[in-house]
Each structure stands twice: as C-alpha cells, then as structure tokens.
Design a protein around this nucleic acid. Structure first.
Lengths: 207, 207
DNA sequence: AACCTTGTTGGACGCTCGTACAACAAGTGC
DNA sequence: GCACTTGTTGTACGAGCGTCCAACAAGGTT
C-alpha cells in the first residue's frame, strides 16, 4: 500500500502564497529562538506554522533555504528599523548618528529572537560559502551607512573607515551582551555606554 | 543474530584516558570549524579522531557534553593566552592593559576555529539554561580582570564598570568581524583600532 | 602463565531527519 | 456546472542520528 484512502481532515485553509511564505518564515524564527538550530526541523517548523510538513518543501527547496530566507527577512527588518530611527531624528547630523547607533538597543533590534536567528545563521556560514557573502553584504551596508553619517558630522575622510569599524564593533558587542545576558546589562545602560563611547570615538584626536 | 564473529580489525591502539579525551575534544573542535554544528555528529567526530563511534559514548555521556567540554577547554585556553600576554607585558599598568586588549587579535584567540566553537555553543545556550550560566561565568571573569587592570591604571572606581563593558564589547565586536571576514579586516588593523579606541575610552572626560 | 581491568570495537535498536509523491480540495475561468 | 490550476495533505522511503551492549584485545598484576 503506497497510499491509503487518505484525507480524513475535514477542511483546510488556503492562503495567499506570499502570506503563507511569510508565516513560514515567522514560524522558523520562533522555532529558532525557542530551540536553536538543532530543533529547527521541517516538521517542527511546520507544526509551529500550523501546516503539514510537506508544505515547507512546496515553498522552499530545502530547510536551509528557509533559514536563509528568515535571515534575509530579519536583516531587512533591521535595516528598516535603523532607517526609520535616522529619519525620525531630524536634520542635525549628530542627532542622526546618535539615533542610528542607539536604535540597536531598543525594539525591534534588541531582541533575543533576532540573536537566535543570527547565531543559527552563523552556524551555517562556515559550511556554505554563498551564505558568507550574504553576511558580508549585510555588514558592509551597515558600515557604509555609518561612514556616511560620520562624514556628515564632519569627520575627516581618512578616519572614516577606522571609526566606522570601531563603532560597528562596539554596537555589535553591546548588542550581543544585551541579548545574551539581559539581566547583566540593561538596554538603557547599553545605550548610555554607546552614547558615551560614540562621543569619545568621534572627537578629534588630542594633542 | 545480534552479534557476529566480530573483530576483524588487525590491531588497535590503546591510549591514556586523558590523551584520548583531549583528542576527542580536538576532533570535535575541528569538525565544528569545518562543518558547523549541523555536522558535529558522534560518528563524524569519531571518524575525525580516528576511533569508533561507540568510544565517544565511553568518554562523554552525550554529544552535548562533548561540545560543552570543547567549549570549556577552549575557554581555558583563551584565559591562559590572555594571562600570558599580561604577564609578559611587564609591570607598567598601561602596557598590561594594552596587552590584554590586543591579545585577542593574535593567535591563538583570533582563530576562526574558535569562532565556530563559540557559535556552536551559542546555538545550545537558548535550549539549555545550565549552559548559559557557563557563558556568564566566562564573560564575568573576562570583565572582572579588565576592571582590575583599569583600576591599576588609575581610573576612578565609578567609571570602571561602564568602561570595562565598553571595551569588552569593542573587543568582542572586532574579534567577531576579524574571524568572520578576515579579508575585510586584517588582524593588524583590528589591533590598531582597538589600541586607539582604548586610549580614547580610558582618557578622562573632557571639560 | 593465568588473570583482571578496561579501552575499544562493530553492530543493533528505535528514532527523527529531509525529501518525494500521489491523492485530494479550494478556488478560478468559462 | 465543468474543467483546470494549484495550495495542501498524508504517507512512504532511505539515510543518518544517539545510544546501548556483547565481544574482543591490550596492558598491568600476581
């Protein structure tokens, strides 16, 4: 018997392809956050999304592709949040820079679920070279925008790269610590530290 | 037939328990670095170590325990490297601090294999609460020693915590970027950035 | 030389994994 | 109301997983 009478389920809901796709991505992010990459199997994600396991294969060629899509989607959400923070900061270059830097320590970026997605993705980077490129792209974009904001603040061009790298590293490190040990480091304190360090790192060199 | 004649292998080498244990840990680290946590199965690690799969179960209650042991071993190696760097820096507090900070950007700490271990471990943190404690311990130790070095440099006690957190974040962020994208950021540049940022972050506040 | 401890092996077990696929149902155009 | 497209399901399959364990061998003890 390869296939039985089958289909005893009374009814099923049909969804818009895009909506279903997004719901699978969201379910993947939730599973990643809850159980880590070890628990992110096709079946677990399907249950989380309330669909059958086979449907995942219908939308994504494999589970790796689903995780990659989840990463890309999350990255886009982060970019949007950063852009929104800068836009709502007004015209003052300094205020825009500070908004860009401190936005990482508030929702939706300071989110342990985001960290889980990031780590899960990181564990795939070493095995899949094409995924490493995606990471470089995300990182490069972040640093490029930071360099732009720094230039608007009047920093000399020669110091842009180094300063941007330092600030990026600082923000990433603080964000990491904030997500990993929220009880050790509060979001407010992280933002305050970042503001202070930002001022020191962007001030002209002393004599 | 539950068991056949068995044992056609001509010979096998018997090892000291500690040596075997270490070789399993080393093999685990190599597999983690090459294939990520997804490929870190008992069988793969056993092949890498040149032993049978059953032997892993003889030394560790489970594969998670082996990964945890690998993390602990790696952490100890990092601590030792940092301590050695500080010790060989002489008596000048400033030199000792700088040695501590820049040691992260040279062997054996600036090692992609170490990053892989760290990420693999991170992907277990969310699922296993007892592992998170181990991480907090490692982190806390790092920051405590940094605070000690900062105090030796004459920084006021009130600023110790914030400065230590900022420097830790900066070092972690730079180390992360260095391991993830060595072609984008060279070790020398990372160390230079860290030195400059260290000077700025530890200088007294401006008027 | 006989013996005991134990490092080591290979295989078996039950399980979950990712994927493929035929069957079915919900819409859609006519 | 009928054909057609396609979102969705359940199941089957082979591979790989972690774990357990009886059998065997290496090395030390007496």
């Amino acid at each position: 018997m390869t296939t039985q009478p089958a289909f005893r389920t009374p009814a099923y809901k049909r969804a818009e392809p895009d909506a279903r796709r997004l719901s699978l991505i969201a379910a993947c992010a939730r599973v990643l956050a809850r159980e880590g990459i070890a628990g992110a199997s096709v079946r677990t994600i399907a249950v989380e999304a309330g669909v059958s396991a086979g449907l995942v294969g219908h939308y994504f060629p494999g589970v790796d592709a689903l995780i990659a899509a989840t990463y890309a989607h999350t990255g886009a959400r982060v970019d949007a949040a950063l852009e929104a923070a800068v836009a709502s900061a007004g015209d003052d270059p300094r205020a825009r820079l500070e908004a860009f830097v401190t936005a990482s320590f508030a929702a939706p970026i300071a989110d342990p679920e985001l960290l889980s997605t990031w780590i899960a993705f990181g564990s795939l980077v070493r095995a899949r070279p094409e995924i490493a490129a995606l990471h470089d792209e995300q990182y490069g974009g972040f640093r490029a925008q930071l360099e732009r904001l720094l230039a608007d603040c009047g920093l000399p061009a020669a110091t842009l790269r180094r300063t941007a790298i330092a600030i990026t590293a600082l923000v990433d490190g603080l964000w990491l610590e904030l997500c990993l040990s929220p009880h050790e480091l509060a979001a407010e304190e992280a933002a305050a530290i970042a503001r202070d360090a930002l001022a020191r790192l962007t001030s002209p060199a002393r004599a």
